[in-house]
Design a protein around this nucleic acid. Structure first.
Lengths: 335, 335
DNA sequence: CTGAAAGCGCTTACAG
DNA sequence: CTGAAAGCGCTTACAG
């Protein structure tokens, strides 16, 4: 137990217990038939040596590592960490070990990220819609089952789950117009993001259908700072918008700060602000943000079910889930 | 390339290239002597088969997995995600694969977490000061080098790095008293957390030394909600405090919201609020939080250096770093 | 420089 | 139920 000594192996245990090494292995394998006496002796020896089977060696023969590659983008902003946290806890509870793969949100997976995949992961789960299509293709070529969050993809052997962004955007457009807003602006997120493409397009289209085209458009990057900066610009001129829909909550917080602190506007009296995601902070009194709820807990539960199903049946037809978001009304918008 | 076929192995490549399997291995091993012609043939064959060495199998003989267990607590709050993000990116850049170990912040590592350690990680890095001493002991018994963030531990084969919490608390106490505050309150975080113990004790002691004992004390859990709730209580009575030091930024945000929104207090005119950590949000105009900066980037850089050093020399004497924090003055405190 | 062989620590048919 | 042996996909002495 000095920590200097190497870890005990099945052979060490076998020797101490006076049995064969295969017997030791069986004692640690679910559903192997071992006599009670054998089991007791092996367990005692294992205990004395602090023996635990080497998962790496085991995986070599079972061809299952129980390792799941989790591709993550940046954890900045309040949304991603919560998703990541929920997902990794769920994986752990199901006996899967999350092996982190850092994906550069803008570009393809670099070499170091690919290296993670040499660990024979049973599957790869992508947790960020910002991962590029090119990266997705690289991952698909790997052979391991691929599961995507935040991007709706129709391809063989690829399952995906993605909030129904168009629906969310339409809910906002309708509510804003119904409440009498006449000068509506949109602040989009990173243009390469799948969610941005869906939200921006749907918002624009729905507004047009309602006969109330956008009066101003900004381009942010889903970060607070860009929300602050772009809002300053969008709200500065004459003919100020009376409503601003932001591509996510983080930018909406920036918009709120810019509007109230820098521009001295009253929210929602002079300006309605709406976000997307409904992160926990959105409910804080400082913000009381009206927003579209992206149901993370439901999403993660489904995502994990998709994984189990895919692992159980690699040949099953691909699945695409699009859970519907709902509009959460708080104080930041006059609705 | 159908994805159905198993991944190519070194034997497949050897066959295609017409060389021995050992030769293939050498071509993928740093510093092995291979002729240019051999290398070319092998590389061509490998390319055609999309061959990449199996890292799992490799680790079995090299006795190095390049896997680093990263023990994380909850990713709620704005501080942990940033630390986690910075650390995992640093590991990836150094060719280490982060294997996530979910630690229950309150209790010992449960079975599923221990299972992660059967993957023969080269080292274990703990990223949360909230991990219990009992868990730490369990990890120490594992034999793998252990590196701790957020808890100062003196033990053999354990390196640790931890912000100088007592110094941070003292800075706040002195600044508050010097600015003329006379009714100072403290809102602590989770009592079992190492940081809480250090910060609370030092703040109390320093204040006593300055002849200005605490007038009120609250107990939170480092979360926004507890900051809000406890502040309501601390600030409700007569003899309201004129300054409130919170154990971290998240609670300070809750305190700010409670003071301004629920109690209608003017900050900092009627009440000074100070946090700890200096998360990015602390600089947002909504909060403009005066706080103690916990230098994450520096900490992670040192943490990673400690890892490299420990891996290079397992017998090196243990190291304990205590980077000094600084007080960041913004609008939430009259200093 | 190159190949045959042993070995890393397991699991799993295969006999008994 | 139990043990001997083959094999998972590599690396690394060891000869040549």
């Amino acid at each position: 137990m000095t920590g200097e000594r190497r870890r005990a192996t099945a052979v060490d245990v076998a020797r101490l217990a006076g049995v064969s090494q295969s017997a030791v292995s069986r004692c640690f394998t679910e559903g192997s038939s071992v006599s009670a006496e054998m089991r007791a002796r092996v367990q005692e020896a294992a205990r004395r040596l602090s023996y635990r089977p080497n998962a790496i060696a085991r995986s070599l023969t079972t061809r299952r590592t129980n390792l799941v590659g989790v591709v993550m983008g940046d954890l900045d902003g309040p949304f991603q960490p919560y998703l990541f946290e929920t997902l990794t806890r769920g994986l752990a509870m199901r006996g899967k070990q999350p092996l982190l793969v850092r994906g550069d949100p803008a570009n393809a997976l670099d070499g170091t990220a690919m290296a993670a995949l040499d660990y024979q992961v049973d599957a790869v789960m992508v947790t960020a819609g910002s991962v590029s299509p090119r990266t997705i293709r690289g991952l698909m070529a790997l052979g391991a089952p691929l599961l995507l969050y935040g991007r709706a993809v129709e391809a063989d052997r690829v399952d995906s789950i993605c909030c129904d962004n168009p629906l969310g955007a339409r809910l906002v457009a309708r509510a804003l117009v119904a409440a009498g807003h006449r000068r509506i602006a949109y602040l989009g997120g990173r243009p390469t993001a799948f969610s941005e493409q869906e939200r921006g397009t749907a918002f624009r289209t729905e507004l047009a259908d309602l006969g109330m085209p956008l009066v101003a458009v900004g381009e942010g990057d889903y970060g607070y700072d860009s929300g602050y900066r772009e809002s300053l610009r969008l709200l500065a001129g004459p003919d100020r918008p009376d409503a601003l829909f932001c591509g996510n909550d983080a930018m909406a917080f920036g918009a709120l700060d810019a509007a109230r602190t820098a521009l001295g506007l009253r929210v929602p009296e002079e300006l309605s602000i709406v976000g997307f995601d409904d992160v926990p902070m959105a409910a804080w009194p400082s913000f009381a943000l009206t927003t579209v709820r992206n149901p993370v807990d439901d999403i993660v539960a489904i995502f994990l079910d998709m994984l189990e199903r895919r692992l159980a049946d690699p040949g099953a037809p691909p699945v695409l889930h699009r859970p519907p978001p709902v509009l959460v009304r708080r104080g930041s918008a006059r609705l």
